[in-house]
Design a binder for these strands. Sequence first.
DNA 1: TTATGTGCAAACTCTTTGCATTACC
DNA 2: GGTAATGCAAAGAGTTTGCACATAA
Lengths: 148, 148
Amino acid sequence: MNANAKDLDLYLEELKSIVKKRGLKYSLQREQILKVLFNAQKHLTPEEIYNEVKKENSTIGLATVYRTLSFLEREEMVSSISFGSEGKKYELNRGEHHDHMICIKCGKIIEFFDEELERLQEEIAKKNSFKLITHQMNMYGVCKECQE
Amino acid sequence: MNANAKDLDLYLEELKSIVKKRGLKYSLQREQILKVLFNAQKHLTPEEIYNEVKKENSTIGLATVYRTLSFLEREEMVSSISFGSEGKKYELNRGEHHDHMICIKCGKIIEFFDEELERLQEEIAKKNSFKLITHQMNMYGVCKECQE
DNA sequence: TTATGTGCAAACTCTTTGCATTACC
DNA sequence: GGTAATGCAAAGAGTTTGCACATAA
């Protein structure tokens, strides 16, 4: 059992406990969708998730993917991001908050976390009597590779 | 002639010069859409813009609004923002860049500008060899009024 | 057993496109 | 007069919903 497999188990446990807490049911589909999100090294569209799950479970429906993503987002296990004219993309919440640098050439999304940025926002919110819940900082530009 | 009327004229002049530069044509519809964006005190959906223009010009088509918004965004006269499950909303670019605080209760968008935030981003981009072009910082939370 | 989840298809919303007509230059 | 813009309707994309059936608890 490697570290990754262990981590996945933790997510599956979390899913089980949420499902139980809400009096809902655990299903293979929910597990498969979560697994795909876990294994992805990037943000995925519902369509991409659907195609990925389909490799293991040819009968899954796209509607199930949409329903599951809404459910997982409501339960804060995944987050979505959308930019430009592209649709929503989803990622698994891996604990700590982060922001995004988005390459306008290749579409790659680079995640980052900056302590000072977090502090600064709190300050700006306070200054405006705004009760901050979450934020999304998206920086658009050209990634290192695409500059060459 | 008040200050506002003067400002609007400047935007109309800018539109005329862009249209000329591109070898395109000036139209009443483009002018009316720009005027609506100028008068709006908030971000507008294409549908809202369409309804607003319709009050003065009952034959305008929704497709024209979409086409004009794409055009104005391409020419950097307007910007769009989209959040949550809501569609895109548009605003006139009034010269200086700003970020947004979005109230999750009433949907209000509060604009702000913070010098230090701008500086910090440049720094983060540089640290990651990312060529920054623009950014969007969206802070989600509850506005002063909705906290009461 | 019984309520929830699923798959399918239809419906819906938002946006884009083709085309004949209009209007700008 | 020639070309771009418009309005309309139809087509597309992305997403949601209704319903019968399957399945977890």
